[in-house]
């Protein structure tokens, strides 16, 4: 196995609801409620090898975006550390996060929000590499033209503003901006979720081409199992802040192990089979403010037993390269 480029080591992220002065005084007097803590990510470990793309899948609110933002240096972990090429991605500076590397770049979900509406797209793409002396400012223009061509946009568009582009085109601009920093690792946070299906395929194909040409490593965050199957070498399934299953893509899709993974597959509506047999997962996803005890999935799991309520199942190896966090693999749920 090649050396890990990214090492996520027992990382947790908690968000504490900010209380203002009034609430703090009320709490001191015993009137207000206590500060609430959201456990977005709990004790996640994951390594990504050079050249590999790992898919992160889960329902909304499962912490996959928070994990991605920690990898991209937007948040710092509350516990544990994220090492990129053996160096931390970011450090916290008071309340803010100072990112330490330019080699990890992120692509956001909504291309309508991720581009500054008042800056010409050429300048948006050129800003980072010029600020970090990746290109000299007088060469920036041809550098940008080259990058726009690479993501399938006419280089002459670089004098335009974001509002003159469609969603798919904007996502290409966002990809060009990330590539301009010559990254080794891309964090893609649902990069196609807000695009039309036909455009999704174009952007995904672009991503696959770039991956091949530039030898990119990636973390691909999505709730769409079909999309993830297309682009990932391995897939991690997340549920309420924890990774519940981690496996090579083909094996996971052929033979899912964790009850949650199986439920996810069953909830996908299939086209053209002729029967409507998709089953939504029973119940709502619990609030990360008050996660269930033991295995987070037990209130919705058809196989749950008393042990699931008591004990948190560790992410344990169940085969070569395969991990699952379920008591069914380790002696049953009683």
């Amino acid at each position: 196995m090649p050396a890990a480029l990214l090492d996520i080591d027992h990382v947790s992220k908690r968000f504490v609801k900010q209380s203002n002065i009034g609430e703090r005084i009320a709490a001191l007097l015993g009137a207000g409620q206590k500060a609430e803590t959201v456990r977005a990510v709990t004790d996640v470990s994951l390594t990504v090898a050079k050249g590999e793309v790992v898919g992160l899948v889960g329902e909304s609110g499962c912490g996959k975006s928070t994990l991605g933002r920690m990898v991209a240096g937007i948040y710092t972990p509350s516990d544990g550390k994220i090492l990129f090429d053996k160096v931390p991605v970011a450090r916290s500076q008071g309340r803010r996060t100072q990112k330490l590397t330019t080699r990890v770049q992120m692509i956001h979900q909504d291309p309508f929000a991720s581009l500054n509406p008042r800056i010409r797209i050429g300048d948006t793409v050129a800003e980072g590499p010029v600020a970090h002396s990746i290109v000299r400012s007088r060469e920036a223009d041809s550098y940008v033209a080259d990058l726009l061509g690479r993501v399938g946009l006419d280089p002459s568009y670089r004098r335009r503003f974001p509002h003159q582009f469609s969603g798919g085109q904007r996502q290409r601009i966002a990809i060009a901006r990330a590539l301009a920093m010559k990254p080794d690792l891309l964090v893609l946070d649902e990069p196609v979720a807000s695009l039309d299906v036909s455009i999704q395929a174009q952007v995904l194909n672009l991503f696959m081409d770039l991956r091949r040409d530039l030898d990119l490593t990636g973390i691909f965050i999505s709730h769409d199992l079909g999309v993830v199957r297309h682009v990932s070498d391995r897939v991690a399934i997340m549920y309420l802040g924890r990774i519940v299953e981690l496996a090579p893509t083909s094996e996971l899709y052929a033979n899912p192990n964790h009850p949650y993974t199986r439920a996810l597959f069953e909830s996908v509506p299939r086209v053209g089979v002729g029967r409507k047999d998709f089953r939504p997962i029973a119940g709502e996803i619990p609030s990360p403010l008050h996660p269930p005890s033991g295995c987070h999935f037990h209130p919705r799991c058809p196989f749950a037993g008393p042990r699931c309520k008591r004990e948190t199942p560790p992410l344990a190896a169940i085969g070569p390269g395969r991990f699952s966090a379920c008591h069914l693999n380790t002696g049953g749920t009683d």
Binding site: I74, K99, Q105, M106, N116, R118, E127, G128, A131
Partner: peptide, 26 residues
């Protein structure tokens, strides 16, 4: 709180760029 500021911070761009090129004009 918008994504383009997050994108600028995660590039990362220097604070003066974020302040005067991204935050102030908007």
């Amino acid at each position: 709180r918008k994504d383009y500021i997050e994108a600028a911070l995660s590039t990362p761009l220097p604070a003066r760029h974020v302040l005067f090129r991204h935050l102030l004009p908007n």
